[in-house]
């Protein structure tokens, strides 16, 4: 590597100083350009969603039942999908977050440096890369084939996506808790479980909650895991999470996006704005929690 560096320097010094400075300026300009190239489409997407969504969103739209695709946007709304997203995501959170925190406790407080602990940590990171549609197929094979479509099946699929994310973010937070805190509690005679529950977890709580909120935000926007677990296609809400097909905002957007009817497309934009707003609220909540309640940071 050192040889490379000297080679590089030699080659460059043969060039006139003016050209070297010009090249440097071109490079800086390209870097700025790459940021612009990203900001323009992002702004375009957000602008389109807000412009097309804001005109259609109303309390009526957010609470009414879903009408057939052909009806214009003034009819009905996306109520069942809003409700489904909130309930299914909440259920997934209840399933995945405690398990993820426990998994992270195992990795950091118990077996983290052993062979098994390192393997679990590594595979957990790998699991974050498993495509979300695979989680849908998995829950379909293991649950839906035996018990049918349900909101719970959707929550399982979303939970599988959230689990490794929660493990990773919680693990990073537990690592930041100073050992002196643990040792202080041990010196008072507390058992390891008690130290973990009453000293380590509260100390890291801000970061853990914020990481969990980000995982929830990501899960709430996922479509692919829900396709074969809650099926969609409802017009009225199904409050029973344990049986029967259900509906969620991402599925509603997905089915409306491929419709030729302007009314269906408008409802799609309205649902998109609702979904993005939910994700933003969760993300801002995460930032507030981080800023207010996290005692240790990197």
């Amino acid at each position: 590597m050192a040889a490379d560096t000297t080679q590089q320097a030699k080659a460059d010094l043969r060039e006139p100083a003016g050209w070297r400075r010009t090249k440097n300026r071109i490079a800086t300009a390209l870097m700025v350009l790459s940021l612009v190239v990203v900001i323009i489409p992002l702004g375009f997407v957000l602008f389109t969603v807000i412009a097309k969504g804001a005109s259609i969103i109303s309390w009526h739209f957010l609470t009414s039942d879903i009408p057939p695709f052909v009806l214009p946007a003034s009819y009905g709304g996306i109520g069942p999908a809003v409700l489904g997203t909130l309930l299914i995501t909440a259920l997934a959170t209840v399933i995945a977050v405690p398990l993820g925190i426990l998994g992270a406790i195992y990795l950091n407080e118990y077996g983290g440096k052993g062979l098994l602990g390192r393997f679990i940590g590594f595979m957990s990171d790998v699991m974050t890369g498993v495509p979300s549609i695979i989680m849908g197929l998995f829950i379909f094979s293991i649950w839906v084939l035996h018990f049918g479509y349900s909101g719970l099946a959707g929550a399982f699929a979303l939970g599988c996506l959230m689990l490794p994310v929660v493990i990773r973010s919680t693990y990073e937070m537990l690592r930041l808790v100073p050992n002196a805190l643990r040792e202080g509690a041990y010196a008072l005679g507390a058992s390891k479980a008690r130290v973990t529950m009453t000293v380590v977890l509260p100390a890291a709580l801000g970061g853990i909650v914020s990481g969990a909120l980000l995982a929830v935000a990501r899960a709430a926007g996922e479509t692919a895991p829900l396709l074969f677990t809650i099926l969609g296609g409802l017009s009225a809400a199904n409050l029973n999470m344990f049986s029967g097909a259900n509906i969620a905002l991402p599925l509603e957007i997905f089915s409306n996006a491929s419709q030729p009817y302007p009314g269906a497309q408008d409802r799609g934009w309205g649902a998109a704005l609702t979904l993005i707003t939910i994700a933003f609220i969760l993300m801002i909540a995460a930032r507030i929690v981080t800023a207010r309640f996290s005692r240790y940071s990197r």
Partner: peptide, 19 residues
């Protein structure tokens, strides 16, 4: 701002993409 790209759900990219 760059992280916002990741906050936009996949299906919203799709909706914007196709329409």
């Amino acid at each position: 701002v760059v992280d916002l790209l990741a906050v936009v759900p996949s299906v919203v990219w799709g909706l914007w993409g196709v329409l």
